[in-house]
């Protein structure tokens, strides 16, 4: 046995690692190869990548740009809901209603247990009313997305709150004469910035990948556009899927850096380091 006791033999470690890496690389390599195919020569070229910006084919790809624009609007509004509605409420619960912390956590993690496809059945009549009153614009859909990102955003922000002495900070600021808006914006926000940033990035990642709700409520976003365009020109959809994958990877590396990189997160250790990264529901859900 080696120093770490139960660690596998390096050969075993590498064998398993290589097999898993190869298995997961195959679809990604296939996507890359697929986008480079050139039907006219039978070989490989960048023709499908250039097609995306070809004015002659703009009509085919228009849904993608419309969808991307809609998805970006949704991402911005969803982040606004997280930062302006969820975060202040969590601070309020932490400071004034400690007894509500457990029920609040239960509610915040509940959407994990309710599949989007189930939620959409109940959302359909609600969005019918919204369509009549607020209009059929894309942005109200962000209200539904705020619920789907709730568990992830909650975890990221709560980890930052747990690592910060909010009460002490509030008392210090108040005794120096700061009003509550100043406490929230100039004292809490900077101290919770890692959690707020991680929550925002996760929300962006989830919103850009959302398909179920938009598709069944007949709204156009990036993912529904990929399906529509993919029926005529699968190459464009594969190219954009590949780009989205790369973008998501960069986002998550950034989230990982934020979580592990700041002095505060390093000092407080486990909770702060592991918590901002939960892109999926790891532990202790309802």
């Amino acid at each position: 046995m080696n120093a770490r006791g139960f660690a596998p033999h390096p050969a075993v470690r590498w064998a398993i690692g290589l097999v898993v890496i190869v298995l997961f690389a195959i679809p990604i390599v296939s996507m890359a190869e697929y986008t480079l195919r050139d039907a006219t020569t039978g070989g490989h070229s960048l023709v499908h990548w250039f097609d995306l910006f070809d004015p002659a084919k703009a009509g085919t790809y228009r849904p993608i740009w419309t969808g991307l624009g809609n998805s970006l609007v949704l991402a911005v509004v969803t982040v606004a809901i997280v930062l302006l509605l969820l975060a202040p409420t969590m601070v309020l619960v932490e400071l004034r209603f400690p007894k509500l912390k457990r029920p609040f956590e239960f509610l915040a993690l509940l959407p994990i247990s309710i599949p989007a496809i189930v939620l959409v059945v109940g959302l359909a009549p609600i969005y019918l009313v919204i369509g009549r009153t607020i209009g059929t614009g894309i942005w109200p859909l962000a209200f539904a997305y705020g619920v789907t990102v709730l568990p992830f955003a909650y975890r990221a922000i709560q980890a930052a709150i747990d690592a910060t002495e909010l009460r002490t900070l509030a008392e210090a600021a108040r005794s120096l004469g700061a009003g509550w808006p100043a406490v929230l914006l100039q004292v809490f926000a900077p101290n919770l910035r890692t959690g707020l940033l991680a929550a925002s990035l996760i929300s962006v990642a989830v919103v850009l990948g959302e398909f179920t709700i938009a598709s069944l409520l007949n709204r156009q976003n990036l993912q529904t556009a990929l399906v529509v365009v993919g029926k005529q020109d699968p190459y464009a959809s594969v190219i954009l899927s590949l780009l989205a994958l790369a973008f998501a990877f960069v986002l998550l590396v950034v989230i990982g850096r934020i979580g592990g990189g700041t002095p505060r997160a390093r000092r407080t250790g486990r909770t702060a380091r592991t918590a901002p990264a939960p892109t999926r529901p790891p532990k202790d859900q309802p």
Binding site: F211, Q223, S237, L252, G256
Partner: peptide, 9 residues
């Protein structure tokens, strides 16, 4: 993290 999110379309 990326691949677990990579579900969908």
């Amino acid at each position: 993290g990326v691949l677990a999110q990579f579900g969908g379309v």
